[in-house]
């Protein structure tokens, strides 16, 4: 990307604390949160190693936002503990975090640069310093000409950029983003994906929630998959894929594939328009499958591969669940 680069020093001045764990950015232990009779998060535990890109995955209403809000100390868990950068949450820890809530919010009547100054200053920066840091970001995201305009005069895409700048002015050790790509056009999605990876490369731990598996697949190296408030899976993406993926086959063919249902050794199948993704049961050889299908249909492509996150997701939390199901998002969480 052209233009001057933002001054970005990741992980400046590590927090001074008694016993802080330099390897773990965030650790949740047995966290539980109920709203009235609804249990939003139940016995949730996972760890996020420092420096990773961590994806918090789950269906709408699975408890992702609640979990993130508890990490940010915006709501408090009923039981369980949350450690951030090896410590309990306090004002100093909060200053080391960046946060982009799912529902974005800016002051529509404020001028862009004034607003950035304000958001930087409530992260502990001096106002002048916040301004100084905001300018290169505005240049880089092509908002420099708008810095003295009111926020309400910005287009939606520009507001998304401004919102993003508010989260990184304090050069956070951990950047937490709740559904960061929702409502973004593909161009902005691409810009932000690159930015996030760049920020991560400089040492910031990145945590984001999403129900769009393709985003997670492209960005994450660590994930936790939660469903109904529980962690169903967690760990590095590589190890999870390995666990699921030794015998996944993608098959593209011409002809009637109905016979596939009757072939032994197929655990499940996911049909797409042009190909079928098949999970083989343990102990069954994909080569054997190839032999069977070549006799019945015209095979155009046969590929043994690791399963997509999409399919792991569906296997774990049920079919059709990574789409916008229209299930009411709980808004009080």
């Amino acid at each position: 990307m052209p233009g001057p680069q933002p001054t970005y020093y990741a992980a400046v001045a590590p927090l001074v604390g008694e016993e802080h764990d330099m390897d773990t950015a965030i650790a949740l232990t047995d966290v539980r949160k109920t709203f009235g009779t609804h249990t939003a998060v139940d016995a949730l535990s996972f760890e996020i190693p420092r420096g990773t890109v961590f994806g918090l995955l789950g269906r709408n209403g699975a408890g992702k936002s609640t979990t993130i809000r508890m990490i940010m100390d915006i709501i408090r868990p009923d039981t369980g503990s949350i450690e951030i950068l090896g410590r309990q949450m306090d004002g100093a820890v909060k200053d080391r975090l960046g946060y982009l809530p799912e529902e974005r919010g800016l002051y529509p009547k404020m001028k862009v640069l004034d607003m950035l100054e304000f958001f930087g200053s409530v992260k502990g920066l001096k106002p002048a310093e916040a301004r100084r840091r905001a300018l290169p970001w505005l240049e880089r995201l092509e908002l420099a000409d708008w810095k003295d305009k009111k926020v309400e005069d910005l287009s939606k895409g520009m507001q998304q950029k401004a919102q993003f700048i508010t989260t990184v002015l304090n050069e956070p050790d951990v950047l937490i983003l709740d559904e960061p790509f929702s409502g973004m056009d593909p161009v902005n999605q691409e810009i932000f994906r690159d930015l996030l990876l760049e920020i991560n490369a400089r040492g910031t731990t990145l945590i984001f929630s999403t129900h769009v598996m393709e985003s997670a697949e492209r960005l994450c190296n660590q994930i936790a998959l939660i469903d109904a408030g529980h962690a169903v899976l967690s760990g590095s993406l590589a190890s999870i894929k390995e666990k699921f993926g030794s015998n996944t086959v993608q098959l593209e063919f011409d002809g009637d594939g109905a016979f596939l249902e009757s072939i032994p050794g197929i655990e499940n199948m996911h049909r797409s328009k042009r190909y079928v993704e098949i999970n083989m049961t343990e102990g069954h050889d994909p080569q054997r499958l190839l032999e069977i299908v070549t006799g019945r249909v015209q095979v155009r492509r046969f590929q043994v591969m690791e399963p997509t996150l999409h399919n792991i997701f569906i296997d774990q939390v049920g079919p059709g669940s990574d789409q916008e199901t229209g299930a009411a998002e709980r808004t009080n969480a």
Partner: peptide
């Protein structure tokens, strides 16, 4: 919705 952004800080 600026409230939640603020409460993150």
């Amino acid at each position: 919705r600026v409230m939640e952004v603020l409460l993150g800080s």
